[in-house]
Write a protein that binds this DNA or RNA. Structure first.
Lengths: 209, 209
DNA sequence: CGAATTCTGTAACGCTCGGCACAGATATGG
DNA sequence: CCATATCTGTGCCGAGCGTTACAGAATTCG
């Protein structure tokens, strides 16, 4: 164990509370006083732990990705590509409409700073969204190689389509759309998905844990 | 415009310049000093003309809608509903990818403040986006009444779908997607659009969430 | 034990923010 | 040509921002 006075707060809990503030107010709209108040700590503790506001934000993003990891794993583990698309879009709809916690509806990767005074924030968020798209594309390319997807399908375009609809759903959620409205949009978007090998679709809906 | 010293700048030009700043930096990220510098005026002139920062922003939004008016008119004047969807999505793709002016790629109604410290800004923007959705829905309802759209089609859901994809396209554009990528997404989204006039439409069961 | 180390709370820093008083400049109307 | 009205530029305001200096409190190590 390390010497010195032990930290008086749980880092992950603090990050979860900071996440809510960034999510609701955006990066610039979240003031340090709001953040420290929500986290239940004083600013020197925050600066000692995270460096500065941007460092805190990056830590929040990592925490966010960690919490969404099981969802993406579940999506990528889909048995066929139509099921992958279905799990992804309906999972996003579930997630975006979820107001059971303290977080506002929508998605942190959009709400916290689509545009902003410091260019580095939107760039970082775009990078994170790009990572998700890349994961989807890799899975689709793999499926195409294995014959689970038509040879004339374009994995990159399909992945981009999923991300586009997903981001649109998040915006709709932030604008106040209901859960069923979002799922209807997801269903409609799935009609554009290539038929692929399997013709049988199960209509089972599962919420993201 | 009676007595008194005449205004030394063109209001619309100033609004166009302010629009670029809000677009690129977001509402909160746009400082008054940046705005006045871009508009080529001093702050007292700005305050005398627009009241305060939020007043300026609202004026910018009006100007924006005015500039987009002919586009929406062209969309709503489409001869059939598939053409309406096509014009809308590809028009948005064109618009979002356009970097010929000084405005960044994407859409002001999203970039300038999806989330923000002052709740009133995201609300106002959501209202503006809602107006567009309402216009599309009204046109679709009208078309359904005239038999140009299947009776079991849902105008509200279709309008929401268009808005969702449109917003997604704008996010993709802001993330750096190319024009052809955006048009590919628009084409793919159009595959989900109900067929022209025939009586047969597949209605998929809604998710049980 | 004392020394070293690490975290915490108080209080304040310099800076930029949005906004405005004021006086000079430039127009109109009588 | 004066009275009135509107706009412009200079300069400044209090508030809040992100950030940090400092000293005391709590722990481990020798």
């Amino acid at each position: 164990m390390r010497a010195g006075r032990p930290r008086g707060f749980c880092v992950d809990d603090a990050l979860d509370r900071a996440m809510t503030v960034f999510w609701r107010n955006g990066y610039e709209g979240a003031s340090m006083s709001e953040l420290t108040a929500a986290m239940g700590i004083n600013s020197p503790s925050l600066y000692a732990c995270f460096g500065n506001k941007e460092g805190l934000f990056r830590a929040v993003l990592e925490r966010y990705e960690e919490r969404r990891k099981t969802f993406m794993e579940n999506v990528l583990a889909a048995p066929d590509m139509h099921e992958l698309a279905r799990r992804y879009l309906h999972g996003v709809a579930d997630f975006a409409a979820d107001t059971s916690g303290k977080n506002p509806p929508g998605c942190l990767l959009l709400q916290s700073g689509l545009s902003c005074g410091e260019e580095t924030i939107p760039d970082e968020l775009a990078r994170h969204r790009g990572e998700k798209e890349k994961a989807l594309r890799a899975r689709l390319e793999d499926a195409r190689g294995k014959g689970e997807l038509s040879k004339d399908a374009d994995p990159a375009a399909l992945a981009r389509y999923l991300m586009t609809v997903s981001n649109g759903i998040c915006v709709q959620a932030a604008s106040g759309a209901s859960s069923t409205e979002l799922h209807d949009v997801a269903d409609m978007a799935l009609k554009a998905w290539p038929a692929g090998a399997p013709r049988k679709t199960k209509s089972r809906a599962k919420a993201s844990a």
